[in-house]
């Protein structure tokens, strides 16, 4: 009896339904907790662009969320540097919820670009750094990151990178703080004000401290480094209109004007 086709099919159906219910039930129960974990992770990455990773690791989840609320103001801009507050359906857009991967599939003119403004506690006008979100393709899969610019909108205050599937020990090293710190102090515009971006070089171990646009590379991960370079070059240009607006209003002390 056990070997009859009817038995096998019945057994399989029951097993599938039971396992399916178990898994979807778990997903339902854990969903909200997972959403919070993802949100915390995003905020950690954003803060990672302006804080030392060792300091960030010492903070508890609640401390990180509280710190984020006190020090970060976020907004969303379009490619022309104009503020977007509502999407086409009239729903408010929240910078932290902008799905950069989904936006990446659209034309650059149609994307939403989140901006995270790192400011002194309690005073959103006392800006310390502007953090932008970048996204692109590595060797195997997507890579992303947050890049913080000083108030001169030129010098890099810090970066954090993330990746989905780069090779451990090679391309995956873009998440190491040792690699990310190499970007600090580099500049994205040259003296004449034209855009240069920052470029990770091939090979590793050379000293680029006297070149403001070159960064020491990662040995064995040229393609991931190229991905990082393209991602930075693309997104810094997408944000440049907004930077321009910020800069032109920098003469007036009230930065809130451009906001």
């Amino acid at each position: 009896m056990q070997q009859s086709n009817a038995y096998i099919i019945t057994f399989s159906v029951i097993l599938t339904v039971v396992l399916g219910l178990l898994l979807s039930g778990t997903s339902q129960v854990l969903g909200p907790i997972q959403k919070k974990a993802v949100e915390l992770d995003t905020k950690k990455q954003i803060l990672g662009a302006v804080l030392e990773s060792s300091d960030l690791r010492k903070m508890t989840s609640d401390e990180i969320l509280a710190y984020y609320d006190k020090r970060i103001t976020s907004k969303v801009v379009d490619i022309d540097g104009n503020l977007i507050e509502k999407d086409s359906d009239g729903n408010p857009i929240i910078a932290e919820n902008v799905n950069v991967a989904k936006n990446y599939k659209m034309a650059p003119e149609k994307r939403q670009y989140p901006m995270f403004i790192f400011h002194k506690e309690g005073n959103p006008d006392a800006v310390e750094a502007y953090i932008v979100q970048v996204y692109g393709a590595g060797l195997w899969d997507e890579i992303w990151g947050f890049l913080a610019l000083d108030t001169d909108l030129n010098t890099i205050a810090g970066v954090t990178f993330g990746h989905k599937g780069e090779t451990p020990g090679l391309g995956a090293r873009i998440t190491e703080s040792g690699v990310q710190n190499r970007f600090q102090g580099k500049q994205i515009y040259d003296e004449s004000g034209s855009f240069q971006s920052v470029v990770m070089q091939k090979g590793e171990g050379r000293d680029f401290s006297d070149d403001l646009h070159k960064v020491d590379g990662i040995s064995g991960s040229t393609i991931t480094a190229n991905g990082v370079n393209n991602m930075l070059r693309n997104y810094l240009q997408f944000y440049s209109a907004y930077f321009e607006k910020l800069r032109s209003s920098a003469g007036s002390t009230d930065l809130a004007l451009v906001n």
Partner: peptide, 10 residues
């Protein structure tokens, strides 16, 4: 995997 995602995201 789901439990890790919820309680130990890192």
């Amino acid at each position: 995997n789901e439990v890790l995602k919820a309680f130990a995201f890192d």
